[in-house]
């Protein structure tokens, strides 16, 4: 998204027409109240997610201390007692809720010396950096490619882009990741095959691409479809009939309305990309959150899994809220009162 609306000194009419609706103070207040209301209504949502995940997790066979080499019965009993696993499920649930409300997600069952909060806070920055780059590339690249393809509908470029995009969507990143790694790290030797290193371009480029490309393909297809429709809209015809330059016709008048479906998809995608990709983090051995989710689940590390579930659901709630606010920013007809 480019520059904003009314700039100081020139009420309402900056020469560059931005993509934002103009707001009145009253609307900002309404919006603020809407955000508060939504955050309040997120509490029951997260509560339900926590409850369902808690009980589903316990329904799965096995437990954190069912190891390949079984523990002594006394040791097991002691451990179960320490972690309250000998109590009825409802009691455990009650304790968990009480602790979570106090911000305590409990100790990890597997990484004995760490609390879940410590593990997640330590891993989250890696996932956020990786995810932010991937999201940025996917959105900017996807919107640009999709727009260009729509402008050149049925051209060779359009067909090429859409074929590649279809491939991009159908090839899962557990295939794309290793292929990228094989070609650029193993065969060409341009970049390392894995590891965070100092988090520079060389280390990040492959995992970011592996994470971004499938999403870029989706964004490109979405944008192209929406742009094809919006380029045919009456108001875009008006813009053309009034001799406005192509940039204004395409960006100001056509693209802005075409962004709505893109923004809808952005919400859940951002939440899932930013909270770490299990596959990409595993393939490129990166210390992000995604890995903990899988390791936690495989090891029945109840608290760790619950912690990541809460994290992901919070991200989803927040990003869906951001999407709703973006709707109102793009379209003045969307008002939350």
């Amino acid at each position: 998204m480019t520059a904003g609306g009314g700039e100081a000194g020139e009420p309402g009419y900056p020469l560059e027409f931005g993509l934002m609706a103009e707001f009145h103070t009253e609307q900002v207040v309404h919006m603020f109240r809407f955000v508060l209301r939504r955050l309040l209504s997120a509490i029951p949502t997260v509560f339900i997610v926590v409850t369902i995940s808690f009980f589903m997790m316990r329904l799965a066979p096995g437990g954190p201390f069912n190891l390949e080499r079984p523990l002594e019965p006394q040791v097991l009993a002691a451990l179960n007692k320490t972690y309250l696993l000998d109590q009825p499920l409802v009691v455990q649930y009650w304790h968990y809720l009480k602790n979570v409300l106090q911000g305590d997600f409990g100790p990890s069952f597997i990484y004995r010396d760490y609390t879940v909060s410590e593990l997640i806070l330590q891993a989250l920055p890696y996932s956020l950096v990786l995810g932010s780059w991937a999201l940025l590339i996917a959105v900017v690249g996807g919107v640009a490619v999709g727009t260009y393809a729509a402008l050149r509908q049925n051209s060779a470029f359009d067909y090429a882009v859409m074929s590649v995009a279809t491939l991009g969507i159908t090839i899962p990143n557990f295939v794309l990741g290793p292929v990228l790694s094989l070609v650029f790290a193993v065969i060409l030797g341009w970049v390392p095959a894995g590891g965070w290193g100092d988090g520079g371009f060389r280390e990040l480029v492959l995992p970011v691409l592996a994470l971004a490309l499938p999403q870029l393909a989706v964004f490109a297809r979405l944008t192209r479809g929406a742009m094809l429709e919006s380029l045919r809209a009456d108001h875009v015809r008006t813009a053309r009939a009034y001799g406005l330059p192509a940039r204004s016709v395409v960006v100001t008048h056509a693209l802005r309305s075409a962004l709505m479906p893109v923004v809808s998809y952005l919400g859940p995608t951002a939440a899932s990309v930013l909270t770490g990709s299990v596959v990409v983090e595993t393939i490129f051995s990166l210390p992000g959150v995604g890995r903990y989710f899988v390791l936690g689940a495989l090891n029945r590390d109840y608290t760790l899994v619950m912690g990541t579930v809460v994290l992901i659901s919070l991200f989803i709630v927040v990003f869906n809220l951001i999407v709703d606010v973006l709707y109102a920013v793009i379209d003045p007809r969307v008002r939350y009162e």
Binding site: G12, Y13, F17, A21, E22, A233, D234, H235, V236, R237, T238, A239, Y242, L244, S248, T252, H253, R256, S257, I330, D331, P332, R333
Partner: peptide, 15 residues
């Protein structure tokens, strides 16, 4: 539908 729903009419006349 001939006017852009996303901009004020003043802005559309001004453009």
């Amino acid at each position: 539908t001939s006017l852009d729903p996303l901009y004020t009419v003043g802005r559309q006349i001004a453009e």
